[in-house]
Write a protein that binds this DNA or RNA. Structure first.
Lengths: 330, 330
DNA sequence: TTTTTCACCGCAAACGTTGTAGATTTATTT
DNA sequence: AAATAAATCTACAACGTTTGCGGTGAAAAA
């Protein structure tokens, strides 16, 4: 089975290729008569413009890139789902790549994005990322980059992120409200701004509003580490009365530790997390969390991308506000 | 900033475009001398072949399509992660689309895949899918389709799926082993072969090996439905002593119901599930499950795809065997 | 010396599309 | 009727690659 091409259509109708092309695009130069004839044949022969030829000619790929640490992640997959949905609706395709938190893979993927001439890129930086040069390279090629969630700390980039400061503040205030005094807080990799900001905000709120609260912070990745650290601290004599989790992975680890020690939530130990919203509902009682929706972030990032593509003047940074969802674990 | 092209390289070196092209591909016609000169300049000028031009010329897109009901799904996202990984390693890109379980979207996406000339497609059919014609269309264009997980029931397709029959059998035998007598089993949409097969297998094992077991089966989608149904049956007088869940979503719903009624697992009620392996570890005690790894399925599907692409003779259907992972909920 | 052989390289035609500029026909004006 | 204007269409050259085939020069064989 062969592809239909403009040439084929033109041969059948006995008119030139350019006329066919224009007829299909409703060019004013073409008479209504031939337009309808062309269009009819086009649908009959299931003509589809060859994307690759179009792109070669117009240098418009209509592909958007998404670079995330990993696809199989509660937060990023809902982000992707959101972007994919909107992209499709606007005639874009998406090309997804994973950095697996390796800067080497990240660079390789950026390279691929450039090679495939994506028209724009959504990116969450890897943990290892230090040098922004590979990203700059894209901008040299006029490919706008919108950073999401894990954004670079320095200025000069488009960023769409969660209101990290806010989220941590809300959590801190909820903890203070409940008169908890010994907080154990788990954060992600200290290299990420997202961790730093949340940590700084949490610390600050306690210092200002409840200076007598004892806050112990740890920075670690993944659920296994979180479980280990939590077990340790829960068995120590300065046992906390509330645990704050920066993300789902921390929460899972924490809850495993809590289960292992047969502690009751929230009586023996209170728990609060920042989360996409799914994980917290799996426990009993449901975990109280500050919502940070990947889906909403995707929607927001997409409008930002659109205005970048249109070369609109855009705010450099937009934030997605957060809200406290009470579960019963605090 | 401009793209480097063969033309540019050829102009700098004062040789023809074709020589440059061949030099970069180690064509035997080209002398070592010019080869090295060309290659050096190419790296210096960061030459990258224009994908779209290559594809236009060679009609090889090196893109593989993945069509799943949704990306934000424990099973499919690990499947995607696996395929993406292997694809990248073999020089393919992947293009991911979601059917959202709507046949209309599915068809539209198949169309897009064709338009983008993917070289092969991994597909899990939507719940609504009845007519296989849109898939046939792809094969008319010589695009091999490898169905995964949710595969069509009829013959004549490449299928890579979980050993559904096996998985259900293993679960049934585990239940019999524990001398449970009143089974409440939740399955997915009755339209999907995956539901039918698992249901048939479970039923058969009980009939053969433990005819006195009372099995109540329901077919429903999603966690809310599962929760509702479970609550109902747990409150009824013929309360089951074990609940079988066909998938993670069922499990979550079931566990919510169990939590609501403050039942103890496994003493008040035992639970067993078929799962990717992540969800079951979140509960306390961990849920006993029959493992069905999306990641492994992805790896398996990829080799199947490779042999399809090579036009090897291939088994029509390959299965991924399952294994019981004991948690403590049974 | 002439012929053959080879290693090396260039020409030119595709792939399917779009845009510019010009060609043809038809309608309108003088 | 001739000249101008408008409507409709066509030719052609790109975009960057790949590839069959033909051409060059020099070395090897005659």
């Amino acid at each position: 089975m062969q592809q239909s091409t403009l040439k084929k259509l033109s041969e059948v109708l006995g008119i030139s290729i350019s006329t066919v092309s224009r007829a299909l695009k409703d060019h004013p130069d073409i008479s209504e008569n031939t337009k309808t004839k062309v269009k009819e044949l086009a649908t009959a022969l299931e003509y589809e413009p060859n994307n690759y030829a179009v792109q070669l000619r117009t240098r418009q790929s209509n592909v958007l890139g998404i670079l995330v640490p990993s696809i199989d992640n509660f937060f990023y997959d809902s982000f992707i789902a959101a972007v994919e949905e909107d992209a499709r609706a606007h005639g874009y395709s998406v090309m997804i790549m994973q950095s697996r938190d390796k800067v080497q893979l990240e660079t390789a993927n950026l390279h691929l994005f450039r090679k495939n001439m994506v028209m724009g890129l959504f990116a969450a930086v890897s943990i290892e990322t230090d040098d922004m040069a590979p990203f700059h390279k894209l901008e040299e090629f006029k490919i706008p980059v919108v950073f999401i969630d894990r954004v670079p700390e320095v200025e000069g980039y488009h960023k769409v992120c969660l209101a990290d400061e806010d989220a941590a503040r809300i959590a801190a205030e909820a903890i203070i409200e409940k008169k908890k005094k010994r907080v154990f807080a788990l954060f992600g990799h200290p290299h990420l701004s997202i961790s730093k900001i949340r940590h700084a905000s949490l610390t600050e709120v306690f210092e200002k509003k409840s200076p007598r609260t004892k806050l112990t912070s740890v920075f670690l990745e993944g659920m296994a580490e979180s479980e280990r650290a939590t077990l340790e601290v829960l068995k120590s004599k300065s046992k906390p009365d509330v645990i704050f989790c920066m993300g789902d992975m921390h929460l899972i680890g924490v809850m495993r530790a809590v289960h292992k020690l047969k502690l009751k939530v929230p009586d023996d130990i209170a728990v609060i997390s920042i989360s996409n919203g799914f994980m917290p509902t799996l426990y009993d009682p449901k975990i109280t969390y500050v919502e940070t929706s990947g889906f909403k972030l995707g929607k927001l990032a997409f409008v930002q991308m659109l205005s970048c593509l249109r070369n609109d003047v855009t705010p450099e940074q937009v934030m997605l506000s957060s809200v406290l969802v009470e579960g019963g674990s605090l």
